[in-house]
Design a binder for these strands. Structure first.
Lengths: 203, 203
DNA sequence: CGGTAGACTGTCCATAAGAACAGTGTTTTT
DNA sequence: AAAAACACTGTTCTTATGGACAGTCTACCG
């Protein structure tokens, strides 16, 4: 989306806030008054500019015919990725089981997708089989973070430890082995960082 | 709220569906057309009836001035209860830290409120200090369920075990003791059943 | 048996609101 | 230096929309 001018941002912010408060979009005249302008035509042009830039959609001849075109994540929620098909990127249509709405209050807007945990290798970190991990997409991670990583075409969730050229993928369960990766020889790709956990089945 | 007539329910359903699809409420004329009616006045009366019955709010003179009055949980999200003030019921205004929106896809609409965990007595059940428990309000629970219970004016989260007149509140951490309650002598009140866990701080 | 609520048709009015045209001046980009 | 985008004022036109009045018919409820 092309960048918005400050004034266009003002208008967009006002529309957003108005919808939040009133539950329906404002009329052009209401926007005009709110911005302290005297003629509705200026606002009208700005709305058309916003529509051209893809920020909103204008429904012709409909009163309050303004629709915000926010990103899919806000409208449909976060994609929930269940089984991961081998060899394909995580966020593929085929991997998405459903979409889950999650307020931005939790996870501070960091969440990009949800991933269903398979196995109990992170049990001692309070991550159990069947839990949903809240993942922020990232290509890099700091040592000590719990990451979603891809190694030999397999996706795994482990605590990342970095030491020079070596990377260690540590489980949080003594029954599982630590995976050691020599970054100069093998490729380890970080898919994301775990920022939260959701468990919706108790027992 | 007084019961709605079938026709009023139709209209309410249509408004709901229209908002879902278009992101703004319909005009009276649009409702009229959608229901296959020929005069807008009938619809108008029905809308006023719906407003009297508290299902909607009509904003005078505003085009599309219909506001759905659904329950607070749907609009504001679930109340998040942080520290519990002693001696007072859980769901008191003063106990609510904030409201969190959670889609109904997770937790199948069972969630009534969120409760912040204090302490690690349920560690081995994957419930850690600071986690948010998703709680369904209930006065009774089955043996084996993880419950929010009140004992001597103190709120605690434990696994419930029932055996005749005795109730046991079992922690999921060997460092904590099992609480035994003789139901014929002491009162144990169940506040709710844990139906999920949310962790929004990793590390 | 009258009263009330529900479920409409049909007409009319005032105004709310989108759409369009004619301008003005500034800033940014090419 | 010209073109394009930005940021407006001001006016006019049409239609979309809420609001009101006058009726009709049915089903209940006490």
């Amino acid at each position: 989306m092309r960048p918005l001018s400050p004034r266009q941002q003002d208008i967009l912010d006002f529309i957003r806030q108005f919808i939040e408060q009133e539950e329906f979009p404002p009329t052009i005249a209401e926007i005009t008054r709110a911005l302290g302008l005297k003629s509705p035509h200026g606002v009208r042009e700005q709305l058309q500019a916003l529509a051209r830039k893809g920020a909103i959609e204008l429904i012709p001849s409909a009163s309050r015919g303004i629709r915000l075109l926010q990103k899919a994540a806000e409208r449909d929620g976060l994609p929930l990725i269940g089984k991961v098909a081998a060899g394909r990127p995580l966020m593929t249509e085929a991997n998405v089981e459903q979409y889950c709405k999650l307020g931005p209050e939790l996870f501070q807007n960091k969440a990009d997708y949800l991933l269903r945990v398979q196995g109990s290798s992170m049990r001692d970190a309070g991550i159990l089989d069947g839990d949903l991990l809240v993942v922020q997409q990232a290509a890099e991670a700091r040592s000590g973070q719990i990451v979603v990583a891809r190694l030999h075409d397999e996706v795994t969730v482990k605590t990342l430890r970095l030491a020079g050229e070596m990377a260690y993928l540590e489980p949080a369960n003594p029954e599982f082995p630590v995976l050691a990766v020599d970054l100069s020889k093998q490729e380890l790709s970080i898919e994301g960082v775990v920022v939260g956990v959701i468990r919706n089945r108790i027992d």
